[in-house]
């Protein structure tokens, strides 16, 4: 597989705030990627630089082997669906006008697929975009993103405001279409949860830095939570990387980054409870660990 996006040492400063701090990663062609992080972690700034809506303070980005800035070749290959997409207020476009514009912009636009998606999400072509609810506006973005079939399709918080039925519809349509037409899809979200099974790879941003960049299947099952009497827990975690430690009375709980099968069975035989943790919990613990480390180094 070849790399479709390469980011190296990317920084973006807003005054004294480092929105992005020496971010480096690569995205392979044809895959579903998750860009995960808390509010303000730098996700949208990063995506805006990738789509050349913002200029980086430092560092390099190449997409399809070229610099994206004012590059029509690169731009015609990217669909960027923003969370809070604004549509012109003065001309009050209808849903069909927005789709008409999208059809002109995207080379691989599939009108039949767009029509099917509109029906799925119950969007009325004649409706003014401004009259759509938050969830319907998000669904319109999803329709455009999917029907664009752009080689690089980026969804920034695609499901905010969408109801559970619409979200599941989105996953189903995405997977079915991705299987037929593989491309590079990037989701940004602060919640991995229900999209976790779709993601091949996740990149976690925290305070403008990449704190995790791994294949989801490698992460699943490697981290664990160890529970039991605090003294025993402390003994068990001596040689492990601890992400988070919690205590109530004499009872303790430790989230550890990685644990082997033999370590796990040894702890269980000592009377400790060892359970794998979910991807979401791993990301939360990692993020907390990172901000703790930062606070310490700031002291």
């Amino acid at each position: 597989m070849s790399k479709i996006i390469e980011v190296s040492n990317l920084s973006k400063n807003f005054g004294s705030l480092k929105a992005l701090d020496k971010v480096s990663f690569a995205i392979e062609q044809d895959g579903i990627y998750g860009l995960v992080g808390r509010n303000g972690a730098g996700k949208t700034t990063l995506l805006e630089i990738l789509t050349s809506q913002t200029i980086a303070s430092e560092g390099e980005v190449t997409i399809l082997g070229q610099h994206p800035f004012e590059n029509s070749y690169v731009m015609s290959n990217i669909a960027f669906i923003k969370e809070a997409q604004r549509y012109p207020d003065n001309i009050l476009p209808k849903v069909k006008d927005v789709l008409g514009a999208a059809a002109l912009i995207f080379e691989n636009w599939d009108q039949g697929f767009a029509d099917q998606l509109l029906a799925d999400f119950r969007l009325d072509l004649k409706r003014k975009v401004r009259k759509l609810s938050k969830g319907q506006t998000a669904a319109l973005g999803v329709v455009i993103g999917l029907a664009s079939r752009a080689p690089v399709t980026i969804f920034d918080e695609p499901y905010s405001g969408m109801d559970p039925v619409a979200r599941q519809l989105f996953y189903d349509r995405l997977l079915a279409d991705y299987a037929e037409n593989p491309r590079t899809i990037i989701f940004s979200t602060h919640l991995v949860d229900e999209a976790a099974d779709l993601l091949e790879h996740i990149i976690v941003l925290e305070s403008g830095r990449v704190i995790l960049d791994a294949a989801t299947e490698d992460l699943r099952g490697q981290a664990a939570v160890i529970e039991g009497p605090m003294a025993k827990v402390m003994g068990a975690i001596e040689k492990l990387e601890v992400l988070e430690l919690q205590e109530v009375g004499s009872f303790g709980r430790a989230f550890v980054n990685q644990i082997s099968q033999s370590q796990s069975s040894k702890f269980v035989s000592e009377g400790l409870n060892v359970q794998p943790i979910s991807l979401q919990q791993l990301i939360i613990s990692k993020t907390k660990q990172n901000s703790n480390l930062e606070m310490e180094s700031a002291k």
Binding site: G31, Y171, D172, L175, A179, D197, L198, L199, T216
Partner: peptide, 9 residues
């Protein structure tokens, strides 16, 4: 599609 998982998986 049936299990709603990534095809690579």
């Amino acid at each position: 599609a049936f299990y709603r998982i990534n095809p690579a998986t």
